[in-house]
Design a protein around this nucleic acid. Sequence first.
DNA 1: GATCCATCAGTATTATAATACTTATTTTGA
DNA 2: TCAAAATAAGTATTATAATACTGATGGATC
Lengths: 69, 69
Amino acid sequence: MDLIEIGRIVNERRLMLRLRQEDLSEMSEVNMKTIQQIESGKGNPSLLTLSKLFEILGLDIRVVVKQTE
Amino acid sequence: MDLIEIGRIVNERRLMLRLRQEDLSEMSEVNMKTIQQIESGKGNPSLLTLSKLFEILGLDIRVVVKQTE
DNA sequence: GATCCATCAGTATTATAATACTTATTTTGA
DNA sequence: TCAAAATAAGTATTATAATACTGATGGATC
């Protein structure tokens, strides 16, 4: 799970909910440019920023022990 | 999954691997104070910082659709 | 091809995470 | 209980995420 994949998930989930980046920005109180950077895999968000987005997107973070080492 | 819980997981996993904070700091190249703040739930790490730690700790991040809406 | 709409990109500023260093404090073992 | 080891905490500095603002780009519809 890297930054690229997380960006892709945020993008997919936002579209699934029929939200514009601007909508998500207002609802989550995260700047639109920050959202763009995350979605494009160019961002390195803090957990707080990510959880603001996830709250609106109905997503959650799980920490798991890595398989297949 | 909030900052407190992630901190607890990092702490538990580090101890399970018999690592001192200093060891984890050197291996992950994350500052020891940063680790302390994360473990005590007072930090707000970036995904990059977290993934450096998770790499050493053998942990991974999963994004899941939230249940109980 | 003009207009509207959504996304993307540049730049400057602000907020804050991360670091380096030092000094407590707590924990542990002899 | 003393000393050493490990963790925590204070302060200052640096790096960078997040924001605000502006302008550009791409696509669709008329």
